[in-house]
Design a protein around this nucleic acid. Structure first.
Lengths: 190, 190
DNA sequence: CCCATGTTTCTGTTGCAACAGAAATTACTG
DNA sequence: CAGTAATTTCTGTTGCAACAGAAACATGGG
């Protein structure tokens, strides 16, 4: 969010202020992030890149959000690990520029995929482990085994379902979701 | 998780150790909590109550998990605010005992409801606000308006869909989810 | 009405993620 | 192969959520 110009053969840039609307959105997105276990700054940077019409470089981001350059660097790395931003290059500029995944549906799918990989899959493993060990050693109370089993069943059903959705192309997912009422009736009849 | 006994007319209780399986589960659940923006201790307490065959009182919980009594008190309040644990009373015992919602599907539905109420609904409001203001003042770039609109559309579609699911009784939800493949085909044909 | 038991609130402490700024490293250019 | 621009890594700091323990408060029973 800089304005760039050249004067007497020298480059200048001044930080462009965010509009109130943009600010409000970025701040809210940051708060939402914290509620979902994502660092506030990371979420803010993502919000900024998401609504930015053009890719931004790290200095831009640092200046616009008022955080340290190093902080941006690490946050960018975090966002990359989530696979939701990528590096692009601008002609005549050596600096890395970053842009967010722009399609909302793809974006959320990507986040869900990552969360599944990082959190749900390990949980499935742990639950299976626990159940196996409880079964083997007979140490745990039957009730514990029962409950862990129910939890595992739940997660397995849900991931299985997600795998289905996951394979659909975006337009089909949208159709699927929007057909909620219709589907409900169909299933109700089954 | 205490063993209680009476000796020479005096009550004794000793803290019962958690089985390795139970420990493993509680610790993992705690970590999962932190990843989703929920306090570790809160999540651990919930895990403990979930797999406990009988309601536990605060002292029990504090002793078993090795945290301060006051910490348990506040965490309990937090869990109650999520609506996933409730107070029960045991005959001949003045203390409050707590038990978790026991049905996995109900439990997750409850959590989803709360998250929607706390996070999604406010986000919808903010987004509508932002878009309205951008529309009114014409201050924001068209691109920003466009992106905010897409985001709003996404959230509206998803919440609309969730409302549908929300109204189904649990067995129907399960059927619905398990019928994933079938539904996919139905929609594909639509 | 007082004592015992149980719970919540208050207050000060602590551990750690988040962070800034400096230093080191890497990549480019003329 | 300097010299500069860009980025990452390192190191020390800080703010705050999480927490423990004490104090205050509530409740029930004899």
């Amino acid at each position: 969010m800089f304005i760039r110009y050249i004067l007497f053969g020298q480059k200048f840039e001044i930080a462009m202020e965010l509009t109130p609307v943009t600010q409000k959105f970025i701040l809210h997105w940051g708060e939402m992030g914290t509620r979902w276990g994502i660092n506030r700054t990371v979420a803010q940077i993502h919000a900024l890149l998401f609504i930015s019409p053009k890719p931004l470089h790290a200095e831009d981001i640092a200046e616009t959000l008022g955080v340290a350059r190093s902080n941006v660097s690490n946050s960018i790395k975090e966002l990359q690990s989530w696979g939701i931003i990528r590096v692009v290059h601008v002609l005549g500029d050596r600096r890395d520029h970053f842009e967010s995944m722009k399609d909302v549906w793809d974006l959320f799918r990507q986040v869900l995929d990552e969360r599944k990989r990082r959190e749900i899959d390990p949980t499935l493993i742990i639950l299976r482990d626990c159940i196996a060990e409880a079964e083997r050693t007979r140490s745990a109370e039957p009730y514990v085994r029962e409950k862990l089993g129910e939890l595992l069943g739940f997660f397995e059903t849900m991931t299985g379902w997600y795998e289905q959705i996951r394979r659909m192309p975006t337009p089909m997912v949208i159709r699927f979701v929007k057909a909620g009422e219709k589907v409900r009736k169909l299933i109700g009849m089954t």
